[in-house]
Design a binder for these strands. Structure first.
Lengths: 244, 244
DNA sequence: TGACTTACGAAAAACTTACGAGTATCCTCG
DNA sequence: CGAGGATACTCGTAAGTTTTTCGTAAGTCA
């Protein structure tokens, strides 16, 4: 990477940090001292080639840094301020070699969070999001205003590590950013994939790199239903395949 | 997000902080300098599409800020000021094609449970169960006396639908019944499989019938560490395999 | 009825793209 | 050492798109 390219990249980064949104090409030009938009265009393209950022074509301020400094989750989860940060000595007991695990007392009694369990994500069929008039507990990290929980039916999402009977917590929204895991409808089939947009094409990547991604074209009917916040599975005897 | 969108969002936020209740659309127009309600309408809609806020249709001052589901989730969630903390009416947002999932009142105030996060289940290697002196929230169905949570490292358990970074709740015990999902050590390797015993032979079945089971013989060193109660996964941008 | 929220339609403003072309720098080959 | 070539870097302008904005009429709720 050339120093100028780095300069542009750094500018974009700091701009985002400062303003909370992406700069326009004109703002980049001014910020980096370019007289022409063409110059910005040039750098944007080269940065894109290097995989440092992605652009959504024709989208205003449609720049996406590829490795945004997204704080590690565990940190925010247990970070300061969190009631779980108290880090008391929870002698967890080693499960090493032959030893037995010492039982641990449970902690806390804080507010619990439940989300409405709204529907069933059918595998390969259109969703029938009906109200189950039920609720399910979730860790607070999965909760949030508007979030709902789906019960997954079918094995169409195994490649994302989501299996029949799992519950997925989703935050409803119809747009997504690159890299987010979305629950989307493609041609009437509902699916969970990782969302990635390059220019005009939208790719839906499975979790496992070995599996082939789906490329969504203009002809496809494509709707994002929401983005995945978490998933849960409860084990019991003979989980899975309870026939059908 | 465009600067204007952010401006509107910020205004709503500060308005709520200042007045304690949501602004009307007219107030938003005045506060942001719009001449027309249509403009406000436009922004509200786009913010809603991005999942940044939820609207109760036709309700006066029916705006609900939604916290971005990505990083600062847990924190903002429990913080004062979060609509969630007081258990207001939260709209679930549109989910299905034409259907709209009606706003669900969320419940709250049940006992909150967290389990000690004890260690890391290494992939294909003997467990190094060390104390993390940390805890993680789980739904009550996963809690129980003695239960602990492991953070999974490695991809050796994908066939069970458990991936790198997942958390598994286990109830430590050294025996299992047929059909239970166990976390076991076989010849020094830790693994999660479904336990099945037929007469003298013990089989460990993967979740997917297509994969081949392991048959444990007498020569093998075999220990059951515990049985799986549940698993959880938290999604965020660029989940999985980014660098490392 | 009064206070708000929704629903179009349409025009101006803001941005992104595409193309063409002109320096400057660095490297290689004869 | 000098000529070619390849890159990096820079301008400017004319489309082509999307965002932003306005206004007005209609629908809701208490």
């Amino acid at each position: 990477m050339t120093p100028k390219q780095k300069r542009v990249l750094d500018f974009i980064l700091s701009f985002i940090e400062e303003h909370g949104f992406q700069p326009s090409q004109l703002e980049i030009a001014q910020g980096c001292g370019f007289e022409s938009l063409g110059t910005v265009q040039h750098y944007l393209r080269s940065l894109e080639r290097h995989g440092l950022l992605a652009r959504q074509s024709n989208a205003k301020r449609g720049l996406q840094l590829t490795n945004p400094p997204c704080p590690p989750f565990a940190e925010t989860l247990r970070g300061a301020g969190s009631p779980f940060a108290k880090g008391g000595t929870l002698s967890a007991g080693t499960i090493a070699k032959g030893e037995t695990v010492t039982p641990q007392p449970l902690v806390a009694s804080i507010t619990f969070l439940e989300l409405p369990l709204v529907g069933i994500v059918a595998a390969g069929k259109p969703v029938h999001a009906f109200e189950l008039a039920d609720a399910i507990e979730v860790p607070s990290a999965m909760a949030g205003p508007g979030n709902v929980v789906y019960e997954v039916r079918g094995d169409s999402m195994v490649e994302m590590g989501i299996m029949d009977g799992d519950y997925v917590a989703v935050h409803p929204q119809s747009v997504a950013e690159n890299g987010q895991t979305v629950i989307a409808e493609v041609n009437g089939s509902i699916t969970i994939k990782k969302y990635q947009r390059k220019g005009n094409t939208i790719q839906l990547l499975p979790a496992n790199a070995a599996m082939s991604p789906i490329t969504v074209t203009e002809e496809d009917e494509f709707h994002i239903r929401g983005i995945l916040v978490g998933s849960m599975r409860f084990y019991r005897k003979w989980t899975g395949k309870s026939s059908t």
